[in-house]
Design a protein around this nucleic acid. Sequence first.
DNA 1: CCCTGATTCGC
DNA 2: GCGAATCAGG
Length: 177
Amino acid sequence: MSWTTERVELLKKLWGDGLSASQIAGELGGVTRNAVIGKVHRLGLSGRAKTTTTAPKTRRKKVAPAGTAGTSQHTAKPLTQGSAALKMESAPLAEAVPAAQAKPVADLVPISSRASILELTERTCKWPIGDPSKDDFYFCGRQSDVGVPYCAHHCKIAYQPVSDRRRDRRTNVRAAS
DNA sequence: CCCTGATTCGC
DNA sequence: GCGAATCAGG
């Protein structure tokens, strides 16, 4: 797979939404998380909020260069010139999804992480997608924390505060009784 | 161990 | 430019 414009756009969107590299890799499909991270760096949009507390500098050793001495190589500096134009993500996945869905609609289907019920483990998202009576039923399958049934994405949906739900208790019209 | 992102470097 | 291998932190 190559980095087409669309795939890069999706990458930027998901990365901006805070998805992890592996999750993005799963969405895109055909790439590993390493590829995603590599691309992210090449695009110059690394480090969003939590850059992890890793020592940003002073380390690096890698394997000893075999014979290739006098390397005049130097990494190209990432020019983030058109960065202004691509700041138009601003589409929080959680908000884009209706709160409280009786039946989980097939939302942003994990392009390649979908799992059958047999593939679910303690750390895979068990968010059901599709209609159980149909043939296209499967689970999200993305990574989730142990003890948590859903991935980060679906946790936002599942545990969304009830406060925002329309309290249309009125609809509970049990007038005639 | 699982995961995360960061970095290097051969291709 | 790409991404596996590696590193390092949580």
